[in-house]
Design a protein around this nucleic acid. Sequence first.
DNA 1: ACAATATCGATAAAAACATATCGATTTCCG
DNA 2: CGGAAATCGATATGTTTTTATCGATATTGT
Lengths: 222, 222
Amino acid sequence: MVHEGSAVSKQALRRIPFYLNYLRSLPEMEVQNVSAPMIAKALNLNEVQVRKDLAAISSSGGRPKTGYNASELTSDIERFLGYQNVNEAVLVGTGHLGRALLSYRGFEHYGLEIIAAFDSDESIVDQDIHGRPVFPVYKLVDLTRRLNVRIGIIAVPAEAAQQVCDMLVEAGVLAIWNFAPIHLTVPDHILVQNENMAASLAILSRHLQEMFDANESLDNEG
Amino acid sequence: MVHEGSAVSKQALRRIPFYLNYLRSLPEMEVQNVSAPMIAKALNLNEVQVRKDLAAISSSGGRPKTGYNASELTSDIERFLGYQNVNEAVLVGTGHLGRALLSYRGFEHYGLEIIAAFDSDESIVDQDIHGRPVFPVYKLVDLTRRLNVRIGIIAVPAEAAQQVCDMLVEAGVLAIWNFAPIHLTVPDHILVQNENMAASLAILSRHLQEMFDANESLDNEG
DNA sequence: ACAATATCGATAAAAACATATCGATTTCCG
DNA sequence: CGGAAATCGATATGTTTTTATCGATATTGT
């Protein structure tokens, strides 16, 4: 029995989509092989790190001096990440962010399909947004369960997020993609993936702050 | 000379906004003190970790049995992250995502203000979007430099991202918030912060894949 | 066929990060 | 006042992640 699952670290899991992206960006006709050093150079990563990541994913391994077969590696990654199955999702909250997510076609490349949206604002309900039906939020639990959907996307204000989260859990979703800037409490078996824009902003802002501080102290010394 | 800058790890930097968020969510009148264990419990983190993070940020330290003064800690964090200065940014790309970002008022809380947008589509130009002027992209370098803006936000398709990135660098920005699913090459002193939705999706999708695999192997054994 | 080279896979070392533990300090309460 | 409880700050330990190193192997060019 194979348990390749736990061989890949969380950090690796964040890099793998970049590999896939890179592979997909290559002209399929011209490039037949890719090597770890090649990917590392393109993505500005350490060569050994990439090689290790690939070793964990690739079914057939790479060949010295040549590397991996590009298309084979591509589908290995897709299989590994489960992008081959279509993962159906429901989205809650049709504000600006929710609409942006509904409008983004790129999710198809990642096997994600948003099949319905929910909103508490009754006036939006019964319209379609970018081809997806919008339902009132009181139908969320029942409908999501009947659709047998496993992913819930939360795009509501922070105040409402935990409540929506509870409903999604009750409806039987297994993973939640949370865009609300708040910590969600869930049962153990549920995965919450926070889309943490505040964290990104913090890193940005801190970077500028540090550069500012550095300049200041230079001034004070000179 | 003080160099508190490098004492905080990258991971800590990702947690700190959550602390701030939590602090801001507290009713200011009722809660005067917060402790590390209190925050840890609320955000489901390790108590020691939170304490260490706070120690690096707090100017005055905490008191045994009491913790930290909430409002003081709040402004310590804001100062640390540079949220007290207003960081002005320009945004490139006014598709669905760009518009969603322009419409989001919450950035003010993080000291970020988007003051102008750029787009290659001339028909959009000269309109305002959510109160911000939209300029043609050929004005990007000149205008951004004259506005003395230090943050650039990239919300264009992957194909155009590197080109836009180069322009932003030429215009003198110091940090780039990249929403395009592609690796950007920049000079050393420039910080690129990737908003990596693909990575989040990968983690989600892989979680489901693992649960699916686990079920399968159970079936095969029973 | 053989040497030079690029890559792989594996193992080892180093660095970053998280968690546990302990004495010291403050507050609370009897 | 004195003991119990909660928290702090610091140090030590453990874990994860990254990076370096080394021998083995496939390819290329002579």
